[in-house]
């Protein structure tokens, strides 16, 4: 069984758990540091999602290990909450300068709300902010939306594979 791994980082624990649940249907394991979920693409290939919340970063988590093994990252913040945006900023700068894996920033839209811009601006490949990261709007508790965001990440990986 081949395994790909993705870290899901959010400002609060709820968003990363929602995202993992949307992709994997359930959270397989959760402790005070990490939430873990498994998505079986088929019997030969699985995707493991490790959820980390930014509040937990003070803990002595092996960030180096997490970073080295990850195919990519999903960073989630709450679009309606500026504090949430502020809290992910150091993380995205850190990911951008220290890691070579791509990442997607999801601005999470609450139930019943609409993204502030028409979907045509981000539906295909997100808003491209660099070769390594993209921005998109989504609802992480909706499986369809979460999968779409994860597909963006897979597409970025495919672009890398195609280019080299």
């Amino acid at each position: 069984m081949k395994i790909g791994e993705v870290a899901v980082i959010s400002q609060n624990g709820q968003q990363k758990d929602d995202f993992i649940r949307s992709i994997c249907r359930k959270i397989d394991l959760k402790n005070e540091r990490i939430s873990f979920g498994k998505f079986d693409a088929n019997d030969q290939l699985a995707l493991h999602l490790y959820g980390l919340s930014i509040d937990d970063q003070d803990n002595d988590l092996s960030w180096d290990l997490i970073s080295r093994k990850m195919l990519g990252y999903i960073v989630i913040f709450d679009w309606e909450n500026q504090i949430s945006l502020e809290s992910i900023k150091p993380v995205v700068d850190n990911l951008s300068y220290n890691m070579r894996a791509p990442f997607i920033i999801i601005a999470n839209i609450k139930e019943g709300k609409k993204p502030p811009i028409p979907s045509s601006f981000f539906k295909n490949k997100g808003i491209v902010l660099s070769t390594d990261f993209r921005f998109t709007f989504g609802q992480v508790n909706k499986p369809e939306s979460a999968r779409k965001s994860l597909r963006l990440l897979v597409d970025m990986l495919l672009e890398r594979v195609n280019n080299f």
Binding site: K2, D40, A41, L45, W63, S67, R68, R100, R151, L158
Partner: peptide, 28 residues
Amino acid sequence: RRSEDRCNRGNPVYLTKAELLMLREALL
């Protein structure tokens, strides 16, 4: 060894193109 020594390396796309395509399809 410090974390940043290691963060700056790695992160290779260790899945093949076929595997990524499979993954993408499964996510549809």
